[in-house]
Design a protein around this nucleic acid. Structure first.
Lengths: 218, 218
DNA sequence: ACCTGAACACCGTTCAAGT
DNA sequence: ACCTGAACACCGTTCAAGT
C-alpha cells in the first residue's frame, strides 16, 4: 500500500480521515478497519490513536467532509431552486461515494460543518416566509426523502445477479403469479431502465410543490 | 437468562429470531451478537448454527417479521387512505422497535413477506389509476420518506443529554450567534415539544397530496 | 512526539467430539 | 439430531517499551 509517492508526509487527523474515505471508496465501508487503515498509511493500527481518538472520530470526520461537499446556493437563489440544487448536489455526492448516505444518516451530525449546513438551509426557508415550525418540518421532510431515496432504490430494482438458467426462469414464472403487480412494475423498469435522476426528481418535486403551495397560500 | 418458564422448548429458527428481536428491544442492535443470543437461549453460540445459517439469516428473519407487522389495508380502502394508514402503521412499528427502521432499510428485502408487501402496495396504486412507472416512483418516494423520517428526527431535535452548567450556557450563547436560524427553529421545538406524529404527517401529506393531483389530473 | 509489539476483551464461524 | 469445546481469523483499543 502507500502507493509510493515520495517521502512520507507526517501523519495528522486530516490525512487519516482522507485515507479512510479512500479506503471506503475502494473496498466499501466494511473494509474500513483501524488495522486496514493503518496498513494503508504504512503504520500500525495502534499508531492511529496518536492522531485520532478512535474509530468514531474517523467516522465523524468523514461525515463532516461529506456534508462539506454538498453545495448550498446562497441568498441570491430562490428558495425552491436552492432546495432543489442542494438535493441534487447531495445525490451526486452519494453517487460518487456509495458509503456516504448510509454513514451520514446513521450518525448524529453535531460537527461545525453540519450545524452550519443546517443553519443555511433553515435560514433560506425562514427568509422565504416559512414559520420556524414549518421550516423545521420542511427540512426534516426534504432530508428524510433525500437520504431515504439512496437506500431504497435497490429494493425495487430487479436483482442484477439473476441467473438466466431454466431454474431461474421457473422461479420467475412462479413469482409472476404470486406477485403480479410487483412483476408488472419491475418489468416496466426492466424494459426502459430507470433513470435515477428522474425517479429522484419525481418525489422531490412532490415535496417542493407542496411546500410552495404552503408558502404562497399563507 | 432464559427467565425460567418451565422445561426448555426445543429450539428452532422462529424461536431464535424471536429471541434476537427481544434482545434488540432490550439492549439495542449492537448487543445482538451470536454469543449473547446463545446465552439468552441457554445454549452456546455454536449451537445456533443448527437452526440458522448465520447471523445474516437471523437479521433477514427479523426484517421479514417487521414487514409482517405493518398493516396494509385491503382493496375496500381508498388508495390515499391506504397509503396513509400503512405509513402510520410502519411508524408505530418503528416506534415500538427502535432498531427496526435502520435494519429493514439497510438490507435487501427479498423474502416472501417483503415481496408480497410490495405487491399489495403496488396493486393498490395501479388500481387507483397510476401507470406502472408512476406507481413505482410513488412507492419509492413514500418509502424513502417513511424510512428516512425515523432516522432524521434525532439530528434536528436538541440533544437530550445537555448539561445546564455555566460552560454549557456559554457554548449555547456562542451557538446562537454562529447558527441563528438553527437556534431559532430549535427554540421553537423546545418551547412546544415537537409532536412526532404531526411532523411525520406533514411530509407524508405533501407527498400524498402531490400524488393525488397526478392521478386526478391524468 | 510518535511508533511498535503485545496484549485484552471481544466478534462470526467451523468442526471434531460427545450424547 | 442437537449440543459443546476449542480453535481460527478477525475486531477496537490500551499501554509499556522503544526511538
Amino acid at each position: 500500500m502507500r502507493s509510493g509517492k515520495g517521502p512520507r508526509e507526517t501523519l495528522d487527523r486530516e490525512r487519516v480521515v482522507r485515507a479512510a474515505m479512500d479506503l471506503a471508496d475502494e473496498r466499501g465501508l466494511d473494509a474500513l478497519t483501524m488495522r486496514e487503515l493503518g496498513r494503508k498509511l504504512g503504520v500500525e493500527a495502534a499508531s492511529l490513536y496518536n492522531h485520532v481518538s478512535g474509530k468514531d472520530d474517523v467516522l465523524d470526520g468523514m461525515v463532516e467532509q461529506v456534508v462539506a461537499w454538498i453545495d448550498v446556493p446562497g441568498e441570491d437563489v430562490d428558495w425552491k431552486e436552492a432546495m432543489r440544487r442542494r438535493a441534487v448536489s447531495a445525490r451526486a455526492v452519494f453517487a460518487r461515494h456509495p458509503w456516504a448516505a448510509g454513514l451520514v444518516d446513521s450518525r448524529e451530525r453535531r460537527g461545525p460543518v453540519s450545524l452550519s449546513y443546517a443553519d443555511q438551509i433553515l435560514g433560506t426557508l425562514l427568509r422565504a416566509g416559512f414559520s420556524p415550525r414549518v421550516a423545521g418540518n420542511a427540512f426534516l421532510a426534504l432530508d428524510s426523502y433525500i437520504y431515504g431515496y439512496e437506500r431504497q432504490r435497490a429494493s425495487i430494482a430487479p436483482a442484477d445477479d439473476v441467473d438466466t438458467g431454466d431454474a431461474a426462469r421457473e422461479v420467475l414464472e412462479a413469482a409472476r403469479e404470486a406477485y403480479p403487480s410487483l412483476m408488472l412494475v419491475a418489468g416496466e423498469y426492466a424494459a426502459e431502465p430507470s433513470d435515477d435522476d428522474t425517479a429522484f426528481a419525481f418525489g422531490l418535486g412532490l415535496i417542493l410543490d407542496g411546500l410552495e403551495r404552503l408558502v404562497d397560500g399563507g
